[in-house]
Nucleic acid binder design. Sequence first.
DNA 1: CGGAATCCTACCGGATACTG
DNA 2: CAGTATCCGGTAGGATTCCG
Lengths: 127, 127
Amino acid sequence: MVTTSSAAALRGDPYDANCATRRILDRIGDRWTVLVVGVLGDGEARFSEIRRRVDGVSQKMLTQTLRGLERDGLVRRTVHPTVPVRVEYALTEAGRTLLEPLRALQKWSIEHLGDVSASQNAYDHAE
Amino acid sequence: MVTTSSAAALRGDPYDANCATRRILDRIGDRWTVLVVGVLGDGEARFSEIRRRVDGVSQKMLTQTLRGLERDGLVRRTVHPTVPVRVEYALTEAGRTLLEPLRALQKWSIEHLGDVSASQNAYDHAE
DNA sequence: CGGAATCCTACCGGATACTG
DNA sequence: CAGTATCCGGTAGGATTCCG
């Protein structure tokens, strides 16, 4: 049993590659998933719109990322059989709940990015 | 300027690989960093102890992970010049603040891992 | 004990071309 | 428009060996 009130909660016990945190980070820790979830956090969006708003993502990786999120039940994919085809993507209920912890991590990032960069510079300069 | 009160906060504006969240996830999103931080959240530990408690990590990757965290100012490395050498690792103040958002993510992971797995099975079975 | 150095491989992910 | 298919290079990371 894992609780959330002790340090053991963060890692699960025992530490292994199969713990919940590891599993989730394996999924959302990739280069694009978090950014895509961030875009969809603003509301439904089409494939090409997501592609525009997630700077630098290739068509292949965006497709792959969206498929993964759909498979996880975090994103709903809706095909409108017009011509040409329209495909809308939106966060599911579960997907929306992910926004909260992601924002916590972003908050930390913004608050500490300066310190981290400074530390890196000092470390590199000291050699 | 990035605020933390809107959806735009999660992604930064514009979306690119240089936003704070992306930068931080590039650092902690790897296979081992989160697990190592989790171990050190319990307190100071020696190299070999961390290696034992983080199941599956190679010596190379543990060294690399710890160097990265030290460079970021999140971990302090202390060498005791005995023979043989003793090296202790501990979270810094900044490192300890990272435990909070990480726990938020773990909490989400634990709460949703079951649903995610079920969704994956359904998705794969439906083909 | 706690690494550094080297070698080697899988696979992540970009570029390109084609399809319904 | 929203993909799929194929090729391909760079690199993350494991195994092994050596060092203070």
